[in-house]
Write a protein that binds this DNA or RNA. Structure first.
Lengths: 229, 229
DNA sequence: TGCGGGCTTATGACATTTTCATGGCAGTTT
DNA sequence: AAACTGCCATGAAAATGTCATAAGCCCGCA
């Protein structure tokens, strides 16, 4: 499924519930907690696609949560939108320095937050925001769950789909089999690394096109990468 | 044409009349009252599609109206747009927390409110904002509650109708069984996900047409989508 | 330059597991 | 009574994870 996973850290329960409701209505998958420590646990258990973080929360402070998220390898690149009180100019600055991607000052309308979230996701991972991505002659429409090459639709299984989607989100970059397992199969999957080879083969077969070259590059003793065209 | 039902709660009679006039001109069906208690009665008698609520009204306060609307089952999901005075930052916060969907600060132009209303309705119930929807060779008339394919009317049950309507409001898009349950059966319904399959089958059967292909696409391990033609 | 060994990847086959379509059925609602 | 709903059992189809084996690549050495 293509619903982006949000982690909402907000200790005002009324606001939290409202936002949870709104976001789920918009097709996001939301987990919420008022507690900083718990947020860190949740984030490490199942890496969210984006974190919405209230600055003033119980337990660990917002800034500390932010910092720790950045420190953990699995969450280091997860975008963070922080919510601040109007006066706390100071926090805002520190927040951005600490690595928040955007901030919103209370009070804000849910629609405003929705827009920011969509914008950040679009910037960081276009496919999550429902935008089609193109890499070389491949075009992927995440909303329709379709992949086509030179106008012709390709037929692939679920795993191959997730795999090519991941590659298309990070073109040219080489991923080890371990990284691919984490990203595509999910962290902690106990699967033979060699199995990745098999799926790469299946993917290659699925996207093979009469004259077009194979866009998947094998990097010996390192992994695989997707090359444009 | 379908006319969305608005409930306007505003005690400035000049403004109220102006808005009523404008909205009716735009094809909405409007009921207005300056009084909070009466608003609640009206809302429960005939559930509106959207409520426009002034924060500073006589009788029960705006925030209380908002809260009670949310508490009543029949009005719990009706979107609310609230109108606030410029300075009342505080109210705004509480309003959003209480469950308003959007707010507008006085003074505002009627056109601005019209735009917000249209946007909210489009988000919540696309069919309300529109006339008939066409997707491929299917044509749905939400007012008449009818679906036809290639000119021939189709006969379907209530659930199948809601299902195809939802699909037609979002053509091509893949929905997971969970999303379909939320959208068609209502959030929180405790229904077996596999039951969706059954209704998909019934829907397919109902819209089957001699030579026309099946417009419902099964996306393995993801869900279903409606494809034009 | 040519060759062979050692290591890495590609491929085809296969047993298992998932996932889906379908028909039937009993309980409700209209 | 007729229509509708939700769920289960069943069978079929698709997808998945592993192996064994073939093929390819890199490197040192003659």
């Amino acid at each position: 499924m293509s619903s982006p996973k949000l982690l909402l850290v907000e200790d005002d329960s009324a606001l939290s519930e409202l936002l949870e409701y709104r976001f789920e209505n918009e097709g996001y998958s939301v987990r919420a907690t008022p507690d900083g420590d718990e947020a860190l646990v949740l984030a490490s258990e199942d890496t969210p696609d984006l974190v919405i973080l209230d600055w003033m929360i119980e337990g660990v402070s917002g800034i500390e949560v932010c910092r720790r998220l950045r420190r953990e390898k699995s969450t280091a690149h997860v975008p963070i939108i922080m919510l601040t009180a109007r006066e706390a100019e100071d926090d805002r600055v520190r927040g951005l320095e600490t690595g928040a991607d955007d901030y919103l000052t209370k009070p804000f309308s849910p629609r405003e937050l929705l827009a920011r979230v969509a914008a950040v996701l679009r910037r960081v991972r276009p496919a999550l925001a429902g935008e089609t991505i193109e890499v070389g002659d491949l075009r992927l429409d995440p909303v329709a769950h379709r992949l086509e090459r030179r106008g012709k639709e390709l037929q692939l299984g679920p795993t191959e789909y997730r795999l090519i989607k991941f590659f298309m989100e990070h073109p040219r970059r080489v991923f080890s089999r371990g990284q691919l397992l984490d990203a595509v199969w999910g962290t902690g999957s106990e699967i033979e690394e060699r199995t990745v080879d098999v799926h790469i083969r299946r993917l290659r077969k699925a996207i093979a096109h009469e004259k077009a070259p194979d866009p998947i590059r094998t990097v010996r003793s390192a992994g695989y990468a997707l090359e444009p065209v």
